[in-house]
Write a protein that binds this DNA or RNA. Structure first.
Length: 623
DNA sequence: ATAGGGTTAG
């Protein structure tokens, strides 16, 4: 009765059916549109539902969308496929994957679009295995995938070995169905290869694309950057720029990742200026990248300035800043900033936050504070379960404080199987604090798990040497010669006028190599007068002492440092970057250089910064 | 009606 009355009313006062709904929806008057839906009752047209659902999707209006769904179920005997597909998208948007799946389950017929919408829903929410299960179901049902399906499903193949295997099978299907050169499919495909570490395959796909756009170019650049192939990323970026590539904020974020890795401050500043000119600087992602870039280039105050100027911050902003302080050994700043984060209470700390805080306490010599945070975490106060890496930080904390036995007990009680990294951290502590008893046990354990890592043999033999157990030193050396492989050759570099000067151990390739080795020799003579004693224990090979000293003087960081002294004016700080951990001998060497030549030396190694002033290092000689 | 690349940690 009232329905009929309403219909009469709507016929007299409004234009009939969807006309009115259309204007209400396009004015964003969702509530009024819902009233109109009720008024139209059984007369609702499919276009009307479509417009309403669209509005609910855009506004993430969950309750309203549910009402539309219920109304549709009541009035339509068989809702058409496109409306049901829109419902899948709607429920996904409201993070109700169960409801989305139910809509798919209730469809009497499905086509490629509805399947793809559901696969996309799972992959967007991070349910890779559900997405990957759905794909073969779709094939079995006889539905042919299209370019949308392939582009979508490949994004779920980046998780692990299982996903990659499936990804390769999907690749061959893509070749068979001739979608390989489709730009969306190609970008997704090359990204999958890059994330699996197969950069050559990724590049192959990229090179075969008949056309390129921002996304495909960014995908391949970031592929290199994510694998730590920073120079290649930078080189490709420059080349593609010459060829007229357009860039957007994602491109610059990826390039900044590469520049962070290279610690290329001048180039980083240049990108920053460019970002400002293009008015891209308000993207939070880009601000986060800039914070990270400045901190990894040694310029923490710039990072902080950007951080302070941000109107909105994500957890990544906080983490990047905390990691910055941590790597610079500024434990107090880490604690202060973490307090601020909690007080502000806008952004919840995540597991990376705690990694940064714990390792910040460790690098900053604040063991007790770090332990407090760990136990706070373990009690579940923050809703984050400590993971293996957090336990690793605690081993580091205890080891640094000389509490080696405690660290050993802690490892035994962990709910994880200790990894090589955990044992390695404890072995390092045993060496610094000369605990041969535990060190020997840990060392052998480590040689079992990781026999190919040369570094482990060196630390163990150093430990024996410090105890005067020369027979054992020799045995370890022999073992090493049999089994160890040096994975990554040592490499150091220094940036001068936007150019990176790279040196390898005993390098012969730099144009000024003669000058540089002469300078290293000169330095060593001067430093010896001031008490420098080469630490022959740092040499891997079994050669005579004179040879060992030569090997030490050939270390890449000494050459980069010497080059810095030659090529920059007196009094200017020298910034050296090394791809591995710095060795004890080079650390001593740099400390003496800073003292005798009155130069500040900033040395970034794989793990952290060493700020060396007047013969003292910010790491407190533990790293 | 359905689609691709990004920032912290390891």
């Amino acid at each position: 009765m009232s329905n009929q009355f309403a219909r009469q009313l709507s016929l007299t006062s409004f234009p009939p059916n969807s006309q009115n709904l259309n204007s209400l929806c396009s004015n964003g008057q969702l509530r009024e549109a819902l009233v109109e839906m009720a008024v139209q009752g059984l007369e609702m047209k499919f276009e009307g539902y479509y417009m309403l659902l669209n509005e609910c999707v855009n506004r993430r209006a969950f309750r309203e969308g549910q009402r539309v769904h219920a109304h549709m179920t009541k009035t339509c005997y068989l809702p058409p496929m496109h409306l049901r597909t829109r419902l899948i998208v709607f429920y996904n948007n409201c993070e109700c994957l169960n409801d989305a799946q139910r809509v798919l389950d209730e469809m009497p017929v499905r086509n490629v679009v509805s399947w793809t919408a559901m696969i996309s829903a799972y992959s967007k929410r991070g349910y890779a295995s559900e997405a990957l299960n759905l794909f073969p179901q779709m094939l079995r049902s006889g539905t042919e995938p299209n370019e949308f399906t392939f582009a979508t499903v490949l994004t779920s193949c980046t998780g692990g070995a299982w996903g990659f295997d499936l990804g390769r099978q999907i690749h061959s299907l893509i070749i068979k169905t001739n979608f390989e050169s489709h730009i969306f499919v190609g970008s997704s495909l090359l990204d999958m290869y890059a994330k699996a570490g197969r950069i050559y395959e990724a590049r192959g796909v990229f090179d075969c694309l008949p056309e390129r756009d921002v996304v495909s170019c960014t995908a391949i650049i970031s592929g290199y950057a994510q694998l730590g192939l920073d120079e290649e990323a930078l080189e490709l970026f420059r080349q593609l720029q010459r060829e007229g590539m357009t860039s957007n904020y994602v491109t610059y974020a990826s390039v900044l990742t590469a520049l962070s890795g290279l610690a290329a401050l001048d180039l980083g500043r240049q990108v920053h200026n460019h970002v400002l000119r293009c008015e891209l600087h308000s993207y939070v992602v880009l601000q986060n990248s800039l914070i990270d870039m400045y901190s990894k280039c040694g310029n923490l105050s710039y990072s902080r300035r950007i951080f302070d100027s941000m109107p909105e911050r994500t957890v990544i902003s906080w983490n990047a800043m905390l990691v910055g302080y941590s790597k610079h050994g500024m434990g107090k700043e880490v604690v202060k900033l973490f307090k601020l984060m909690k007080e502000e209470n806008k952004v919840k700390p995540d597991s990376v936050t705690f990694l940064a805080v714990l390792s910040g306490c460790s690098h900053g010599g604040m063991e007790d504070r770090g332990l407090e945070y760990f136990y706070e975490m373990a009690e579940g106060a923050n809703g984050i379960e400590p993971e293996l890496e957090h336990y690793g930080c605690v081993v580091d904390l205890l080891g640094r404080a000389g509490r080696v036995e405690e660290a050993f007990e802690f490892i035994k009680k962990m709910r994880f199987e200790p990894t090589a990294a955990i044992w390695g951290s404890l072995l390092g502590a045993c060496r610094v604090h000369s605990n041969v008893e535990i060190g020997e046990f840990v060392g052998f354990r480590l040689l079992q798990i990781e026999p190919e890592n040369a570094g482990n043999y060196v630390i163990l033999s150093n430990l024996y040497a410090s105890a005067g157990r020369w027979e054992d030193v020799r045995n370890v050396r022999e073992l090493m010669v049999e089994k160890a492989v040096i994975k990554e050759p040592g490499r150091s570099w220094i940036e001068l006028d936007q150019i990176l000067h790279t040196f390898h151990a005993s390098d012969r390739s730099h144009p000024r190599r003669e000058e540089v080795s002469a300078k290293v020799k000169e330095l060593s003579v001067k430093l010896k007068e001031a008490g420098y004693v080469p630490d022959l224990g740092c040499v891997l090979y079994d050669v005579d002492e004179e040879q060992k000293e030569k090997v030490l003087l050939g270390h890449s960081e000494k050459m980069a440092l010497a080059f810095g002294l030659i090529a920059t004016p007196e009094g200017v700080p020298v910034r050296v970057i090394k791809n591995l951990r710095i060795c004890v001998d080079c650390h001593n060497f740099a400390k003496l250089v800073s003292k005798i030549y009155g130069r500040e030396v900033s040395l970034r190694d794989k793990n952290r910064f060493h700020h060396i002033v007047g013969g003292t290092c910010s790491c407190g000689d533990y790293w």
